[in-house]
Design a protein around this nucleic acid. Structure first.
Lengths: 145, 145
DNA sequence: CGCTAATACTTAGCATGCTAATCATTAGGG
DNA sequence: CCCTAATGATTAGCATGCTAAGTATTAGCG
């Protein structure tokens, strides 16, 4: 049987709590860095996905970002309103939405390249430790898949 | 200078992305476990804090949970509506809100004690690895404090 | 004592995330 | 070919989180 020690309900021992706080805290580091471009962090993640491949469908983006289409649908409309993305129906399958980077969206990539360095610098942690963290988080994600 | 290797914008290498997904994924494990009690995960975290000490003020809960009062205020009203908590103004300082467990709120603790075990079991990861993860997350949180 | 600043909480507004329901389009069996 | 099921996306409803603004109360200086 699993042994969780003395008080398994102690707040400061909950991995779920640490995950929530760490996630919010790291996103807070991005906020001022993304603000000049009018982007939120979830929108930034969509841009990362599109910089890797564009155009992509909502379903495809959802698979990459682990999001429901219901979350992405309004988010993509905001990215379109910002001028970083176009939304159009696929000609081969009218059910699909073709999400494609605009010129402005592509151009933003050059600006964004500075962001990871600034974030790591602000965190002030070793890259090796962050890579180790990424590895454990990936195992957590795989364990819940 | 920091070296982030080949492509620092690659989605699958972002710690922030892994954090978001892992956080959402772990919370998803709690959802069916909390549903019988009508609790969301953030509400559950408030209950954990109150099981450690009750009554507490909104400010005190906010410090423990790393939340603004603006986030807690409506959340606490819902906990009150659920019958787990009472909200009343402090007699010594009318600005303060006294958040206190009800009998039902206290009783819920016995039920909740099973939850951490079920979560760890569902995750299927070693407790030692989860403790290590907790340690790294704590360092991330401290680095952003 | 009186007044201003600080404190504690609340509310409004906005952007996620999630579930469930809905809509349009396509696939595929009979 | 037709009809139903499956697919891809959108919408509605609800609960966070966050920023900014507002309200009530208390603290503390002159």
């Amino acid at each position: 049987m699993i042994d969780l020690g003395e008080d398994p309900l102690k707040l400061d021992r909950q991995v779920c709590f640490a995950l929530s706080v760490a996630s919010r805290s790291v996103i807070a580091i991005y906020r001022p860095l993304l603000e000049p471009y009018g982007l939120t962090h979830p929108q930034y993640l969509v841009m990362l996905a599109l910089w890797e491949r564009s155009p992509r469908s909502v379903k495809d983006l959802g698979a990459a970002l682990r999001h429901d289409p219901a979350t992405l649908s309004p988010l993509l409309k905001r990215l379109e309103a910002l001028g970083y993305v176009t939304r159009s129906r696929s000609r081969t399958d009218e059910r699909r939405l073709t999400v494609e980077l605009t010129e402005a969206g592509r151009a933003l990539r050059a600006e964004a390249e500075k962001i990871p360095y600034k974030v790591v610098e602000t965190l002030g942690m070793d890259v090796s430790e962050l890579e180790a963290l990424h590895g454990v988080l990936t195992r957590v994600i795989d364990a819940t898949a």
